[in-house]
């Protein structure tokens, strides 16, 4: 589904990703962990098409297409979804109007007729129920004045509506208390399916108690330095990142 080959990217001339290799197959959940500044969020941003980053080498193939050639909106239409670490507040645009535009733009991209208001509302209500999203938030301006938990839940709700093939969760746990974390994780788990893959970017292991990964990768200094089964996350929780750093330095 997703094949990242020797991906290099920099921002303002500073190289952040120094050759990332990663294969993701449908139905899999991959966790990307690593100390602060290792390049985790950069990887998520580059995959979603954030323009501040310059790709300086390598390639990314998604469902047979050269992902790096696509605009962010085309990537979304092809089935990539980025749940933001800091969802943006947009005054004056309601969540419902925002999503209706998004759904119909994606349908247009795929050559499908737009959903009418009734069809759209029915679908949205079902999805809101699925991820325990409060209906009253839908009519409010997008993320404006939402609590941290509400914003993250809104991300998961948008994911439910857009039904991506690959969901990338960028530090979705940051700023959440344990209850909010559980609700958001439940939403993500509800959306797991054999066709859908998920990349969970996180610093801490605690999110992985709820969203259990198939693989754990440790990113350090712009490279994946260790990969393993879910138990690797527990080991990191117990021992911290220093032993990994030491391992890398010893080899390097």
């Amino acid at each position: 589904m997703l094949s990242i080959n020797d991906l290099r990217a920099s921002i303002e001339g500073k190289e952040i990703l120094k050759g990332i290799n990663l294969e993701v197959k449908p139905g899999e959940v991959h966790a990307i962990m690593g100390p602060n500044g290792s390049g985790k969020s950069t990887l998520a941003s580059v995959l979603a098409g954030r323009e501040e980053y310059e790709v300086t080498g390598g390639n990314v193939v998604f469902e047979g297409k050269d992902l790096l050639e696509l605009a962010p909106e085309e990537r979304a239409a092809e089935g990539i979804f980025l749940a933001f670490q800091y969802p943006v507040e947009i005054p004056g645009v309601t969540t419902i109007n925002f999503l209706k535009t998004a759904v119909n733009e994606i349908r247009k991209y795929k050559g499908e007729a737009p959903l009418d208001a009734a069809q759209f509302l029915k679908m949205v209500r079902e999805k809101a129920k699925l991820v325990s999203m409060n209906d009253s938030l839908l009519k409010r301006a997008l993320n404006e004045g939402f609590s941290g938990g509400e914003k993250k839940r809104n991300e998961v709700f948008q994911m439910a509506v857009l039904e991506p093939r690959l969901a990338i969760l960028d530090e979705t746990d940051s700023g959440l208390d344990i209850d909010a974390l559980r609700i958001v994780a439940e939403g993500v788990n509800t959306l797991r399916s054999p066709e859908r893959a998920t990349i969970v970017v996180t610093h801490y292991q605690r999110l992985l108690d709820y969203i259990v990964p198939d693989y754990v990768h440790v990113l350090y200094k712009g490279r994946i330095v260790k990969s393993g089964p879910k138990e690797l996350a527990l080991e990191l929780e117990e021992k911290g990142y220093d032993w990994i750093k030491a391992e890398v330095e010893a080899v390097g």
Binding site: A48, P72, E73, A76, F84, P87, V88, Q158
Partner: peptide
């Protein structure tokens, strides 16, 4: 960027 990442054209 937030809107584009949801499939809305520029």
């Amino acid at each position: 960027f937030y809107m584009r990442s949801r499939g809305i054209s520029r």
